[in-house]
Amino acid sequence: MQIIKWLNEHIEECLLVILTSIMVIITALQIFMRFVLGSSLEWSEELARYCFIWMIYIGISYGVKKQRHIKVDVLMLLFKDKGKVILNMIANVIFLAFAIFIVIYGTNIAVQIFGWGQTSPGLGLPMAFVYFATPAGMSLTVIRLIQQLVKQWKFLQGSYVDKDEVIEDRETDLYGAQDNLNDRKISANEGGR
C-alpha cells in the first residue's frame, strides 16, 4: 500500500527528473565530444530525442494531475463553481475518451512495430520502445483523469473537496509562476536587509 501511495504521488515526477537529466547530459556530451575531442557519437542525438518523447507523454499525465493543460476558458468565466465543475467534467470525459483511443491504437501500433523488429539507426534500439511512450503515458493519463473525475463527482455530490482541486485555476499558476514567486519574495526580502 505504501508503495502504491508513493507511486501515486511521485511516479511522474521521478520519471521526468530522470529523463530530463539524461537529455541535458547527453546533449552536452555531444557538444563536448565534437568540439573538444573532435570525434562524434552517432547515438547521442537519438537517445536524447527518445528520452524527450517519453518525457512529453509522462509530462502529459503530470499535466492532468497538476491541472495545467493549455486551454481556452472563455466559457468558464460565465459559470459559478458548480457550473465550472460540470463543464470541466465534460472536458475531462472527452479527454478521457481520446486518451483511451490512443492507448488502444498506440499499443496496437507499438506491438506491431515490435514484431517487425525495426531498430533505430544510431543505437540499434527497437523502435517499439519509442512508440510505447504514447500508450504508456496515456495510460497514466487515463488514471489521472479518472481520479480527477471522481473528485469532481464527489464535489457535485456535496462531499467536501478542496475547490482548487476540482476547478482548474490554471491562470495564476501558469509556468509555475506562483512557486517561483514564493521563492522570490523570500529572496527579495533577504536582498532588502
Binding site: L16, Y57, G59, I60, G63, R68, G176
Partner: peptide, 14 residues
C-alpha cells in the same frame, strides 16, 4: 526539472 518538463509537455501535446 519537473516544472520545466510539465510546461514542455503541455506545449508539445499541442
Amino acid at each position: 526539472m519537473v516544472d520545466a518538463s510539465l510546461t514542455t509537455a503541455t506545449v508539445l501535446l499541442i
